[in-house]
Amino acid sequence: MTRSGTVATAPPTISAARAVDVVKLYGTGHTAVRALDHVDVELRRGEFTAIMGPSGSGKSTLMHCLAGLDTVSSGSVFIGDVELRSLSDKKMTALRRDRIGFVFQSFNLVPTLTALENITLPTAIAGRRPDPQWLDTVIDTLGLRDRLSHRPGELSGGQQQRVAVGRALAGRPEIVFGDEPTGNLDSRSSNEVLTILRTSVDRLQQTVVVVTHDPHAASYADRVLFLADGRIVDELRAPTADTVLDRMKGLEQ
């Protein structure tokens, strides 16, 4: 507690999100599972971070906690300078809406809304109009201009996921989280989506964090964090698919 207290009063940093000494337990007593075991991590602004690890390593849990979708058992999580544990549901919801973007593995679009309506949904929920210039930029980056009036059912998986990326980017969030964003896509669509995410970091200075088990997807990142048994065990900068694969092999042994 003292540690998180000192961090909370620390001056603003360049981190988009931070986890400080985070522990996440599932269940209680003997059967308790420690999904995150004193994790400290800092995600820098304008950087593309990939979180990797074998199944059950806690990589998804870490992302859920960082994104305010799940609560931590102890430690603190910050989005920018805001400590998440102290937030009410209402404030947390508003924070997710205004400062965070999500891309899910299974697209999760509203089937009754058009592509454009899905993209602008979070802004609309907030009762705001999207910045038209920014929206144009996003749509061009996605390459979806001729698909805007289609409903999700009329789009391919890759196109649907591009719409989902558009939804995440349209509100100009501080950070975009992706939970296996290419998990349901073929390799061509995967590349498209990853390229878009990469572009958003390079050109639009977006901060992106993805959880993935695919070394190829991780190779698009600036930095790769490796998790095993709820701890960060390794880190790699400027990764290639091969270097990532090597580290992963090392982890699994």
Binding site: A94, R97, G101, P122
Partner: peptide, 16 residues
């Protein structure tokens, strides 16, 4: 449920 969960995730308030 999944859709509502998504709406909650992208920032829809409970009241909404």
């Amino acid at each position: 449920r999944r859709e509502i969960g998504m709406l909650r995730a992208v920032g829809m308030h409970r009241a909404q």
